[in-house]
Design a protein around this nucleic acid. Structure first.
Lengths: 337, 337
DNA sequence: ATGAAAGCGCTAACAT
DNA sequence: ATGTTAGCGCTTTCAT
């Protein structure tokens, strides 16, 4: 058995090379690589020695081509920073199941989502977790018909029946609303995403329902729409004009923009933000939030994916994950006076 | 030309199916898929119609197997949140070059790094960007000898000669130090990572150099070591005991831990943190930082990777990227009295 | 328990 | 300009 040293420009060894080095058939090497127990002890050892000597690494592409399965899970998320807690949980479970996560960022653009998903399909991922943009995901229908499991996270896909994991948006808004009422507020405003976006719609609707249910409903304080400096400034002005004493923001982006515009006046308005984020506890006052349970969302999503791989005919489900109110100060400010 | 509708359980169409549907040879379909200009207009149209009708997507694994190149760039980063700005830049450039980034998190563990890198190698990535853990990366030697381009980011690899992109740590510490001196501080402390970590070592050394160069050297105020609650508490106590009026923190983790422990006393000590992070501007006082230029780091890293792919024999380089002082308030607090 | 041969879906080399 | 053939590196029948 000649041992070959690492040397510049050398070709990558194949299974064939290992077989030759060990003096066995190709099939035997394949068996050893795949931990097939039917291979004899002595031969197995010889093969393993050859693998180590040549520093052989099996080619996953060849393997996938033959097996028809890639061991890859695609994750098309809107952006990596916000998706990180979810992706962490997905990755952990994937690793436990000897799968690799191929994560791509869609940057909130429908076209990028489509590109990302299609490139995943060309890589023959075994399943896709998607945080959907837009409302039409028909383009996935063909892949799903071919057996691709798809799980939607945070919002549902449009036009196709896919498993879905979402947070309990209505409960979150309800908790925030009641918390503020409990702390004496009677004029409460909401500032969130445009209602064409699923979460924006759900949260705004939940807020309206809270107002209607709250004996003395308060009109004119729901401000859904695109989150940008100008619109938030206008909304804040309206909030002041209506003499609202508390504000619920519909997502982290809105919360941050509001904090930035309030500046040193941050303490003048009770504030509860939907979505927790790092350092929210270091602000003064600390930011009270409705936190999504990202770890559970991620675990549930990949769990549903694995379940559908195991049984493609199981019924399509939507799972709602509870949210949590985290008290840090900004939501407990009393109304002035 | 019979058109096939999407139907449950149907097999995924291959290039062969497209060829049959279009009534052409396999090779012609391959040519069309790869935009080979030598294919006739009428045939090309027929092929494209067949592709659309069958909803055919080429198999990247088969393609890679044949071509010997995967179009994949591996990125093994310590964690996704901190690496996000770098990864964004890498991804953008990769997309421009029709490549896909396969990002994996190493969670600061040497073993996970090795696993991640090896799984990338099995997927035959065309190059690897790595934020190295530990000091021994010999295990990459064989792959590099086989022609795998490797670029280290943030710190150098150990035991192998790889292209490297790092921030100008010494300049950053120098800027922070001089900024504090300029604002009247004479007793300045440093609290950072353990010196067995490259950046911890570089930054602590730079701080010592600053002290030595600053006429009136101050001893006992360099506190490198692991960042945890107990050690930071002890360091802060020592800082107070030494009557230091200003503190430089060596990374974001240290900065956040210090802020958390200072709590409402945050304004009692001038503070400059190495590494910027989101919401640093919303703290009170705003946090003055030394910001790394992540976009440039990412672009440089993948640029070096592409350059080495094009010319494997180019000399190995280390590029140092400038850092920037961002003034927000905490670093401009005067010494008390 | 081990081996020989076929073939996964594609592209490169070589006809025509 | 288009088609035929071979083979990338592996796993899977099917022998032995």
């Amino acid at each position: 058995m000649r041992s070959r040293m690492t040397q510049p420009g050398r070709k990558r060894p194949t299974m064939r090379d290992v077989a030759r080095e060990a003096g066995v058939a190709l099939r035997t090497v394949s068996r050893v690589v795949n931990d097939d127990p039917t291979v004899g002890g002595e031969l197995a050892a010889r093969v393993r020695t050859a693998i180590a000597a040549l520093e052989y690494e099996p080619d996953e592409h060849a393997r996938q081509l033959r097996r028809g399965t890639s061991g890859l899970i695609g994750a098309a998320m809107r952006n990596f920073v916000d998706a990180h807690p979810v992706l962490s949980a997905v990755d952990a479970t994937a690793r436990d199941n000897r799968m690799t996560v191929l994560a791509m960022s869609t940057e909130d653009e429908e076209e990028r989502e489509r590109e990302a998903v299609m490139s995943m399909c060309r890589r023959r991922v075994d399943g896709i977790i998607i945080e959907p943009i837009g409302t039409n995901h028909q383009y996935l229908a063909a892949e799903m018909a071919s057996g691709l499991p798809v799980v939607a996270v945070d919002r549902p896909c449009g036009g196709i029946a896919a498993d879905t994991v979402i947070s309990d948006n209505a409960a979150g808004i309800g908790m925030a609303f009641r918390h503020l009422v409990l702390h004496g507020h009677r004029r409460i405003a909401y500032l969130g995403d445009a209602e064409r976006i699923f979460t924006g719609r759900e949260r705004a609707a939940a807020f309206r329902a809270c107002m209607a249910a709250n004996g003395e409903p308060i009109e004119g304080l729901v401000h859904p729409g695109q989150i940008d400096t100008a619109r938030v400034a206008a909304s804040l002005a309206a909030v002041r004009a209506a003499r609202a004493t508390a504000l619920i923001t519909g997502n982290a982006q809105a919360t941050v923009e509001v904090l930035r515009q309030l500046g040193p006046d941050a303490g003048s308005l009770a504030l509860i933000g939907f979505d927790d984020f790092p350092l929210a506890d270091l602000l003064r006052p600390g930011l009270t939030v409705i936190a999504q349970d990202s770890a559970t969302i991620g675990r549930t999503a990949i769990g549903m994916l694995l379940a559908r791989m195991a049984d493609p005919d199981r019924p399509v489900q939507t799972v709602t994950v509870p949210v949590e109110l985290i008290v840090r100060g900004s939501g407990e400010l009393p109304p002035p006076g």
